[in-house]
Amino acid sequence: MMSEPVSALKVEKLRKTYSNGLVALDGVSLEVAAGRFFGLLGPNGAGKTSLINSVVSLARPDSGSVEVFGKDAHREFREARRMIGVSPQEINLDKFLTVEEVLTYHAGYYGVEKKKAKERAEELLERFELVGKRKQRVSTLSGGMKRRVLFARALMHDPKLLFLDEPTAGVDVELRYKLWEYIRELNHAGLTILLTTHYLEEAEELCEEIALINDGQIAAQDTNAGLKERYAAESIEEVYLKVMGRVAGG
């Protein structure tokens, strides 16, 4: 008899109220199957980043539970966090470090041994065309270059679940396509990906399953094709407008 496959991410009845009284998450439940390319869409302030932050314990939820590959994100935080990679929306690179150091120090924070970290850094520097910049301080890089470093950093400790929070914001078209190609390749190799994006065509192109979030609640969730069918829509953009319009209209 086969045991039930473990979800990469299982969020149950998550509620998060900020100190100013804003309810960012209003009982969100979400399950992302292992190996899935999952999209989380919604307008600004819908709760996307709050959800990610609650999983990685940057935000403290009021109630609810989070499991990452069966590990409780709170009680077994070391195991859970080790499996997660985050490429955040805002660039937050350690300004005292060089490109190469950003990668190797990150690996160290996740307990990856030095030799392995060096090999992995080499691989990612090449992959993201950063070899020529390796000795350069990150603070001196252009925006697009910083974005690449951010992305490579998230992959340094070989996460099993990758959060990409608006990864292509402010990125030129060429890099965006390269990133897409690489993300897809990673997903095919088994990495579970949760993507938040404002570019709906990006979500349509990449994601197998999509959840729409608004006002801290999941408004709709299905496979890419399932959503289009359910809302008699030609594109995810149309689904998005219908769902958000319906929500806005009460």
Binding site: R81, V86, P88, N92, Y110
Partner: peptide
């Protein structure tokens, strides 16, 4: 303070460290 102001402390806060 610098790490917090420029948010790179997040990298440390979400790592497996207590």
């Amino acid at each position: 303070f610098d790490a917090k102001r420029e948010r790179y402390i997040d990298e440390v806060l979400i790592s497996p460290m207590s």
